Amino acid sequence: MVEDLDVQMVASRLQASIGLFVRRLRQPAPGELTLPEVSALTRLEQPGPATASALARAEQITPQAMGVTLAGLEERGLVERRRDPGDGRRVVMSATQAGLRALHDRRTARAEHLEKALTAGGFTAAELETLMAAAPLIERLSQSL
């Protein structure tokens, strides 16, 4: 029963376990896109091209930090800059096909990494079912934060 559970203890255990999970999942493999690069490319994927300052605002970081991230992505051919068709004084950034492919590849690699961990972790079928049942609950909890 919910009344019997210590909600503070549940919150504390979730914070610790999900925090560890997220930190481990975010660790990039050598040569893989970093988290800031993934964030920038994701924002350029949907809704599309944007200025560096708009991306910085959306990510709640400084324009200088976004500039460093975009410069690294541009150097590797993952984003490109173009004049804004509506205002030729502004520059908009957009993801290249190579950038979208790198983003897709990273997502696939993360899912495969997680799949290997589930397989190698010795999880039983019942435990996998429990994790599957917990996924929508964790998503709902995330939306409540």
Rank of each mutant, 00 (worst) to 15 (best):
A95V: 04
E59L: 15
L118N: 02
T130D: 05
A126W: 03
L25F: 11
A71L: 10
Q97A: 15
A11V: 10
S17A: 14
A125G: 10
D87E: 14
R24K: 07
L118E: 01
G99N: 02
A98C: 01
P36V: 04
G72V: 01
R24M: 12
H113E: 08
T124Y: 03
Q8Y: 10
L78S: 02
E37T: 06
E129R: 13
S94V: 01
R89N: 11
G122T: 05
T34L: 08
L44T: 04
G86V: 11
L73E: 01
L131T: 00
L70E: 03
T108P: 04
D84W: 00
Q46G: 11
G121A: 04
E127D: 05
R83E: 09
A95P: 03
T42I: 02
T96F: 03
V22G: 05
G48H: 00
M9C: 09
T34R: 08
A133T: 07
P49Y: 00
E129N: 09
Q8R: 14
A11E: 12
A120E: 13
Q60K: 12
L55H: 09
G88Q: 14
P28T: 00
Q97C: 04
T119V: 07
A16Y: 12
G86W: 11
S17C: 09
G122S: 05
P85Q: 11
T119G: 04
T69A: 07
A126D: 09
T62E: 11
R89W: 05
P49D: 01
M66H: 06
V10W: 03
A109P: 09
L33F: 02
A40G: 06
T69K: 02
A102F: 05
G67C: 07
R101L: 10
R57K: 11
L128K: 07
A52M: 13
Q8E: 12
L44G: 06
S53E: 09
P63F: 04
S39D: 14
T96S: 07
L70D: 03
L41S: 07
A126L: 08
V38P: 01
T42D: 11
P63L: 05
M9L: 13
L44F: 07
T108E: 14
A133H: 04
L131V: 06
L103R: 13
R24H: 07
M9E: 14
L25N: 03
R57Q: 11
L131W: 01
E32Y: 00
Q8N: 12
R82H: 07
I18E: 08
A40K: 05
S39Y: 09
A125N: 05
R13D: 13
G99I: 05
S94R: 14
T124W: 00
V91C: 09
L70Y: 01
V92F: 00
A102G: 04
T96Q: 01
T124I: 06
A95M: 04
L131C: 03
R23K: 12
F123P: 01
A40N: 05
A126S: 07
R101A: 15
L128C: 07
R26L: 14
